[in-house]
Amino acid sequence: MDFGLPSEHRMIRDTVREFAEAEIEPIAQEIEDEHRFPAEVFEELGGLDLMGVPIAEEYGGAGGDQLMYALVTEELGRVSGSIGLSYAAHTSLGTKPIEAFGTEAQKEEWLTPLARGEGIAAWALTEPGSGSDASNMDTVAEKDGDEWVINGTKQFITNANVARSILVKAVTDPGAGYDGISTFIVDPKNDDGFEVSTVWEKMGLNASPTCELQFDDLRIPEDRLLGEVGEGWEQTMKTLEGGRISIAALSTGLAQGAYEAAKRYAGDREQFGQPISKFDAIRDKIVSMDRKIERARLLTHKAAWAYDEGMDTTRISSLAKLDASEVSREVAEDAVQVLGGYGYTEDFSPQRFYRDAKLMEIGEGTSEIQHVVLGRQLGL
């Protein structure tokens, strides 16, 4: 697991692992049962300088790279999918684009507090009528003097009801297609015309809020435009490359947590006078789980490395996300099976990993969309 990792990366990973096992794992099921966003955990992550891992130090971040960020995300997912998901959405979707596309003034006002852990971020792309076809959006932003006026609905937005800022995609030129989409910084606490209309009850990941947003003549100053008018779709594509790597890392973490629970149980549980790990059927499951996780981790690390090298990561990030998300679900399902009846109870973690893992095949581009992306990359 340490193969090729620089010492600084191993140190950060081990720090997060110790924190996660001591502070998150004991409450992981509790916050799911309560459907409670654990703000105190994110405050502690901020205190550890982990809320801006891939953000430059001059903007309050840790100055780390994508690989370091992937390691942190994996370790959080290893104990809590919800915390890992909210962390990933904050970092890769809500924070990183401000560094990549924002003005110096925007970075000072919006990026620095997020990187320091003084607030959490969100990113609003999906709409009720546009899921996989994310470009087919109805939310519009019209210029009125020195303000932008936003109207529309966004759906399945992570962190929105606890966010300090939300990056919102809206159509600014209805006739321009992909070139008619722009990005805006919304302050959900202070901007009039913004409402969280629904916080969804979900199959899993219920300590990570997923929201529907309504914009009703929301007025924001013109300096809240991120980048230039019409650059929103290009920004989205670049953002999703990093986002898919983070979901691959989170998926790997979920699989690792499920595998460890199954392996531990199989070593302790005895049937017919011996641990069930000694039976071929159980041993072969656990070996297969370990093999799949190593494959997913290597793909994820390769994608993160390519990202850090400035390479085109469209193919490798999509491949990592596709493989790791499916591995996550497969391993979690096998973990439930290893535990048998106990695996179906909330006294053991595999059921939580199983429910959480399913979203990994849906969010940030479904598995079906990843096949489309990869097919295009292969010239098919």
Rank of each mutant, 00 (worst) to 15 (best):
V373T: 13
D191G: 00
L298P: 01
G145D: 09
T314H: 09
A281W: 07
E231L: 01
S208Q: 08
Y307W: 09
W233N: 11
V372K: 12
M360P: 02
L167A: 02
E21T: 07
R283W: 12
R78I: 05
L76E: 09
L240A: 06
I369P: 00
A249W: 09
S165L: 04
D312L: 10
G4F: 05
P209K: 04
T236V: 10
Q370I: 01
G81V: 05
Q351M: 12
H35A: 15
S132R: 14
N161K: 13
R329H: 12
P188S: 08
A124G: 11
L45R: 06
S325I: 03
K292S: 12
L85P: 08
V149F: 07
I181C: 06
D2H: 11
R291L: 13
T300V: 03
H90F: 09
G4P: 00
R295M: 04
G341P: 07
D192L: 04
T313W: 10
A89E: 11
G131Q: 13
A105V: 14
D347H: 13
S80W: 04
D144Q: 14
S317C: 12
A124I: 10
I369K: 14
V199P: 01
V168Q: 06
F42C: 07
Q370L: 11
Q235W: 01
T239W: 06
E346C: 00
W200R: 13
V331G: 07
F272K: 10
E43D: 11
A163P: 05
E234I: 08
D308G: 15
I24G: 02
V372L: 12
E75Q: 13
G47S: 08
G227C: 08
H35G: 15
A115W: 04
E109L: 12
D65E: 13
L378G: 11
G117Q: 04
V327P: 03
R219W: 00
E270W: 10
T252Y: 08
K238A: 13
S208C: 14
K107E: 05
I120T: 11
G267P: 02
F353H: 14
A105T: 11
A320L: 05
A160T: 08
D312H: 02
S197R: 08
P188Q: 08
A255C: 04
T73K: 04
E309H: 10
K107N: 05
L322S: 10
A176G: 13
G119C: 04
Q29R: 15
M237L: 14
E57P: 03
A28R: 14
L225M: 02
M203L: 15
